[in-house]
């Protein structure tokens, strides 16, 4: 797969193209320049490390949206086996922006639900850029209920710009569909582990992310509104998205320090899109550890713990008013 470089990665892109050239030269030359190549490769690595060490929140959002980033189905094939995809909400449509079904995790049955973006233009359109309609959330709800019935733990993967803001979505009750999921997930009697793998876009993300454990990949983001949306409202210009991203605190690190997520999963050097296999390995280990922790709890304990957690969200002060 050819990697596309982001704007702030241009210095890396230049070094990489130099490596490419050198390799080309070496192929039809008698002189051995492999030492030169490995030197430049080391330089590229260091450059990547340096740049990624000080990513701004806005740059992080760019990585989270990277077109080569692994999506739910990629992790499904690398981490899970025997995936049986189920379709449809049983009342109006199938929504390909959310995928889901039973699978095996280390041999054990489970339910997997996740947002799904498309790779090429055609698939992007089919998957509606990962923006679910009410049908998608209702399909997810159906699968969650089924997971509860058969006591299958649920793994959800979050990667959406947001729920689809369209006419038909409103007509079919986008608000109700999201709200219903929040209601049911609050009390669902199976462990739920949610992982933000790319973009955690507002209510459209939360609708499958109410969980016992919430994790984020290192360069994923999770926010109440997109930085562009926030900027165009508060700064009156979408160009100030960088400022909005700073102010809102959308990165895994910031959200972990605020106590809003439980765990950060480190990504390979230069982001998950550089090495899908490494990213999958790290994700799998985290899923495994979190599931075994949650499995120690009885169902009533689990549900009570989830409820207390939900109730603890928020920062306010208390003061007796006269």
């Amino acid at each position: 797969m050819k990697i596309s470089f982001l704007e702030f990665e241009q210095p890396i892109a230049e070094v990489e193209s130099k490596i490419e050239q050198l390799r080309f030269v070496q192929d039809d030359s008698a002189v051995d320049i492999s030492e030169e190549i490995s030197k430049v490769e080391a330089k590229s690595k260091k450059l990547t490390k340096d740049i990624y060490a000080k990513l701004t929140p806005w740059q992080c959002a760019m990585v989270a949206r990277h077109p080569n980033r692994p999506y739910t189905l990629d992790y499904l094939s690398s981490i899970f086996t025997d995936f049986e995809e189920l379709h449809g909400d049983r009342s109006s449509a199938e929504d390909a922006a959310i995928v889901g079904g039973m699978a095996r995790f280390n041999g054990q049955s489970c339910m997997v639900i996740g947002h799904q973006k498309g790779r090429d233009t055609k698939e992007k359109i089919t998957r509606n850029f990962g923006m679910p309609r009410p049908e998608g959330y209702r399909k997810a709800l159906r699968l969650m209920r089924m997971a509860e019935k058969y006591q299958l733990p649920i793994f959800s993967f979050i990667d959406t710009p947001g729920a689809y803001p369209g006419i038909s979505a409103e007509e079919r009750g986008q608000s109700e569909a999201i709200g219903r999921n929040l209601l049911v997930m609050a009390e669902l009697e199976v462990p739920i582990i949610a992982t933000v793998i790319g973009e955690g876009g507002s209510g459209g993300a939360l609708a499958i992310a109410v969980a016992d454990t919430v994790m984020m990949l290192q360069y994923s983001t999770y926010a109440v509104i997109s930085p562009e949306g926030c900027a165009s409202i508060l700064w009156k210009s979408a160009d100030r998205a960088g400022d909005a991203a700073d102010a809102m605190g959308i990165t895994a690190q910031r959200l972990k320090s605020l106590g809003l997520i439980d765990r950060i999963i480190n990504e390979p050097l230069g982001g998950a899109h550089r090495d899908h296999e490494e990213a999958s390995k790290a994700l799998k280990i985290s899923l495994q550890e979190e599931l075994s922790q949650l499995s120690k709890l009885s169902i009533p304990e689990l549900v009570e713990r989830r409820f207390e957690r939900l109730m603890s969200y928020g920062r306010f002060k208390e003061q007796v008013v006269q």
Partner: peptide
């Protein structure tokens, strides 16, 4: 928006 993800979580909290 000024409370970032804390405010998103209020959706889950109130509904729970």
């Amino acid at each position: 928006m000024q409370e970032g993800l804390f405010s998103l979580m209020q959706m889950a909290k109130t509904t729970a």
